[in-house]
């Protein structure tokens, strides 16, 4: 497996307080890596270290097979990024900003400017200074700037902030296109579970500066279990029925009025029929999915923290 980016025991201390502890992350070449965590978990700090803006207190970063040092400037040519929120020379127009970016990056294909603006669907902004842009437009322009030089790795910090639902969908498609068609590796941070779930191949979950899980979406999907949830007036009696009439032992009495069946090869219809025949009243019966959200909230412990 080729990893385009790896960190080993990455740690950052600010004024004696450890804000990033021992982070070992591995981003495979060509994948979309979702970097998930509540606000303030340390996503941006890790990304700033990756971009050489702040220096690790200990641990190391490897990119494209090389160790990142204070002098690793050449590596930055191969990366496009937005950290925190996109900043521009806001008295200049969108094109002037992109032109400057290309000059600084040493990229001289000027056609790429229009192509990038097309890809992010930013039109008719020729004479407008960036300071008059909406947050969503700035976000699009930031992404245009990040992708203009066709980097091998894209580091995007909360790229969908400030976008409307249509914009979010457009960008999701764009990220998938960049990954599939151009073979670009994407590291995308977000605190919005649903978005990461829809895009990512691998998810890294960070909480309080620690990487608590790094797992492929595929395996999370397989881990998730379905169950039948029954609300009844007498769950003990219902349990007896399940055991005796249906031979089900994989169930759990959640409380006196609720019972969950984890058996997968039994239908709702059969369960309902048996219970009614045995005179157990049913208030409701549903097939539930133990969602990804539950999975992550457990990881991050204390669901209220998810913004």
């Amino acid at each position: 497996m080729t990893y385009i980016l790896q960190t080993h025991h990455l740690t950052k201390t600010f004024q004696g307080k450890e804000v990033i502890s021992n982070v070992n992350m591995r981003v495979k070449k060509g994948e979309i890596y979702g970097f998930l965590g509540p606000n303030g978990a340390g996503k941006t700090t890790v990304m700033r270290m990756l971009m050489n803006l702040i220096k690790p207190t200990s641990g190391e970063i490897n990119m494209f097979g090389q160790r990142v040092t204070n002098q690793s400037y050449e590596l930055l040519k191969r990366i496009g990024c937005i950290i925190e929120y996109p900043v521009f020379y806001d008295k200049l127009t969108a094109k002037e900003n992109l032109d400057l970016h290309c000059e600084y990056m040493g990229y001289y294909d000027k056609k790429a400017i229009d192509e990038a603006l097309d890809l992010v669907n930013l039109h008719n902004v020729d004479d407008k200074a960036v300071k008059d842009f909406s947050l969503g437009m700035k976000q699009r322009l930031g992404i245009a700037r990040a992708i203009i030089t066709k980097p091998e790795l894209l580091i995007l910090d909360e790229p969908i902030n400030g976008l409307d639902p249509v914009g979010i969908k457009e960008l999701r498609n764009l990220f998938q296109l960049l990954s599939k068609e151009y073979g670009i590796t994407l590291l995308i941070s977000s605190h919005i579970l649903g978005e990461i779930e829809l895009m990512a191949d691998t998810v890294g979950v960070i909480s309080e500066g620690r990487l608590v899980e790094e797992v492929s979406m595929e395996s999370i999907r397989n881990k998730n279990t379905n169950y039948i949830e029954i609300c009844t007036n007498d769950s003990k009696k219902a349990a007896l029925v399940l055991e005796n009439s249906l031979n089900i032992s994989n169930y759990k009495i959640v409380d006196p009025s609720m019972i969950r069946i984890y058996e997968t090869d039994i239908s709702q219809h059969e369960v309902a029929k048996s219970l009614i025949l045995q005179d157990v009243s049913i208030h409701s019966i549903n097939v539930k999915n133990h969602s990804l959200e539950d999975y992550f909230l457990t990881l991050i412990n204390g669901g209220g923290k998810i913004a």
């Binding site: 971009m51 050489n52 803006l53 002098q71 400037y73 050449e74 590596l75 930055l76 040519k77 990024c81 950290i83 925190e84 900043v87 521009f88 020379y89 806001d90 600084y104 990056m105 040493g106």
Partner: peptide, 14 residues
């Protein structure tokens, strides 16, 4: 102050 210095420092230039 405008953080455009961050931008400059992320370019492949010392």
């Amino acid at each position: 102050k405008n953080k455009t210095m961050h931008l400059l420092f992320m370019y492949p230039i010392k």
